[in-house]
Design a protein around this nucleic acid. Structure first.
Length: 559
RNA sequence: UGGGGCGUCGUCAAGCGGUAAGACACAGGCCUUUGACGCCUGCAUUCGUAGGUUCGAAUCCUACCGCCCCAGCCA
């Protein structure tokens, strides 16, 4: 055993390390990520994916990808490909270890027969309603089903009939015979098989019965030789049942189930059910809407796999109910892109600026660094001429204190270009549009002050003659409140943020951006990080999604 | 009211009987051709509460309080 003096492990990694060091336990780690193909993966799944694949990689073990497809009523083939693509994109690999719970249907059935033969499972004819009555309540014990003492022979006969399709849905169910008085409701003769005459996406019409999660999951884990079965807190009460099935059936392997708390983030919802609702009710534009915290949505927004993995690493693993500040996620993408993203000049809300002492037909090309601190990223040329666009927010006729951008009589630096001074403002009598008239200092080419005078403000700009018109989408948090699910009486959708999407179709890009490859990311200086949408961009005509804004201490002060 | 879990800074989170890491947020300052980035400083005499054990407790014991999960033939 090597001594590990690294940073603190979470409690699961600590358990795994101890188990691996224990000679009575398996010395190879096998974990698994078991999604149900009934929706898209979200950032909460990313936490589980990073944990499961992470511990496997850290311990030279392996992590299986297993689709938990035991309920054909809810599952669809289309989700499988999407889930696979999302996990791959996140950067994880399962090699040959791609499985489906449905691969084990025959084995599950054999185990069920074994249970019947042991006198520990029976076919029950109670309806769903009746079963609920017999189950008792949280404080009162349940009652035994009148069918509980059927003979093994009869149970075997009935179970075979269920499988064959002799009975209608809901007429029979196979249950484990455990303890109707258990304080843990999961142990009150839980269901094993229900009759469902539905076509399964992989087994077709071969089966008329499908196993319940509790029965299928522990057996799938055991069959695959999983050593550590990591899941979320709500399954804690199921652990005694997980262990009961495996102990009773004496499976060769008996994985250890360990639970951790699920991820919650402020200003969003995380359940697949609710995300599906947003999609089907058209509150968003599909599963990959950039406002959705699905993996596909984050990818479309422009997040990098690295940022998401880093986020999962820093939030930690524990058993405490928590809700992480969305700012932590945003900080992760800023941190990643600050290093990687080339800079560009883009005006989102254009305001015309005319340089009166600059010759009408003259043009210039300035050199702009692609990254302020990494010269290896090179530079590019940006064209300049008499008329340019600046950001509306960078000019004020009556500037407040500490506003050191442009205003009448003020001098600012045009990034990489010249120092200009605002002489006057003119409103076009016809269009009503504002025009800022300036003079420039020819000696300040590049943006430096020849006489060393201090110019505090630097603003971005794009040549009006050369700029490219483009669409840019701005995104804000999907919900207006920190916890949209706080009040169960109120529909979470009433908290949707009406301003979560703003489409700007009049933005001006510096010419070099015409060649922005779909899927590429930039920092638009002084504004934020943007992603050339891989779905809506076309050659020579990128459409940008705002990934995250830059920190803005001026905006903060103005508040 | 039965069972299971959890309570350390605004939000996450280390800590495992020897005197409260770190991250995000926040507040100041420096730097600056991005009010960005970076850098510096500050930010829990206190660990849900109350008792107890101990030279010493966030860590051990007892009681209480609060929050989450469970009564699907969902996962």
């Amino acid at each position: 055993m090597t001594i590990n003096n690294e940073k603190p492990k979470d409690f699961i990694r600590a358990i795994i390390a101890a188990d691996l060091a224990d000679s009575t336990k398996p010395d190879e780690l096998v974990s698994r990520f078991p999604p149900e193909p009934n929706g898209y993966l979200h950032i909460g799944h990313a936490k589980s994916i990073c944990l499961n694949f992470g511990v496997a990689a850290e311990n030279q073990g392996c992590c299986h990808l297993r689709f938990d497809d035991t309920n054909p009523a809810k599952e669809e083939k289309k989700y499988i490909g999407a889930i696979i693509a999302d996990i791959r994109w996140l950067g994880f690999d399962w090699g040959e270890n791609l499985f489906y719970a449905s691969d084990y249907f025959e084995q599950f059935y054999e185990y069920a027969v074994k249970l019947v033969k042991m006198g520990l499972a029976y076919v029950c004819d109670l309806s769903a309603d009746e079963m609920r009555q017999y189950r008792g309540t949280l404080t009162e014990p349940g009652q035994n089903s009148p069918y509980r003492n059927r003979t093994i022979t009869e149970n075997l006969f009935l179970l075979a009939g269920m499988r064959r399709g002799d009975f209608p849905e809901g007429s029979h169910i196979l249950r484990a015979k455990i303890d109707m008085a258990s304080p843990n409701l999961n142990m009150r003769d839980p269901a094993i098989y229900r009759i469902r005459k539905i076509t399964h996406h992989r087994t077709g019409n071969e089966w008329n019965i499908y196993p319940i999660y509790d029965f299928a999951h522990c057996l799938s884990d055991a069959i695959e030789g999983i050593t550590h079965s990591l899941c979320t807190l709500e399954f804690q009460d199921h652990r005694p049942l997980y262990d009961w099935y495996l102990d009773t059936l004496r499976t060769e392997h008996h994985p250890q189930q360990i639970e951790f708390s699920r991820l919650n983030l402020t200003y969003t919802v995380m359940s697949k059910r609710k995300l599906l609702q947003l999609v089907t009710e058209n509150m968003v534009d599909g599963w990959d809407d950039p406002r959705m915290l699905t993996i596909a949505g984050l990818r479309r927004r422009g997040y990098t796999p690295e940022a998401i993995r880093n986020f999962c690493a820093i939030i930690g693993i524990s058993k405490k109910d928590s809700r992480i500040d969305m700012g932590v996620l945003e900080n992760c993408i800023r941190e990643d892109l600050n290093e990687k993203a080339p800079r560009a000049l883009v005006v989102l809300h254009p305001l015309k600026l005319i340089i009166d002492n600059y010759p009408d037909d003259q043009e210039d090309e300035l050199t702009a660094a692609n990254h302020p601190k990494n010269s290896a990223m090179g530079s590019r040329k940006v064209p300049f001429c008499k008329e340019i666009y600046i950001e509306q927010a960078d000019f004020m006729e009556e500037p407040p204190k500490k506003f050191y951008r442009l205003a009448p009589g003020r001098e600012v630096r045009l990034r990489f270009a010249y120092l200009v001074t605002c002489e006057y403002v003119r409103k076009d009598p016809v269009t009503g549009e504002l025009e800022i008239h300036c003079t420039y200092d020819p000696a300040s080419r590049g943006g430096s002050a020849p006489d060393g005078r201090k110019v505090k403000g630097t603003i971005h700009w794009v040549s009006a003659r050369h700029g490219i018109n483009a669409e840019v989408r701005l995104y804000d948090r999907l919900f207006a409140v920190e916890n949209p699910e706080a009040d169960s009486e109120v529909d979470f959708k009433t908290h949707l943020n009406p301003d979560s999407l703003t489409i700007l179709d009049n933005c001006v890009l510096e010419p070099s951006l015409a060649g922005a490859a779909p899927g590429s990311r930039y920092q638009f200086e002084r504004q934020g990080y943007f992603y050339a949408d891989h779905k809506d961009s076309s050659p020579g005509k990128p459409v940008f999604n705002k990934i995250a804004g830059l920190r803005d201490s001026w905006a903060k002060r103005a508040k």
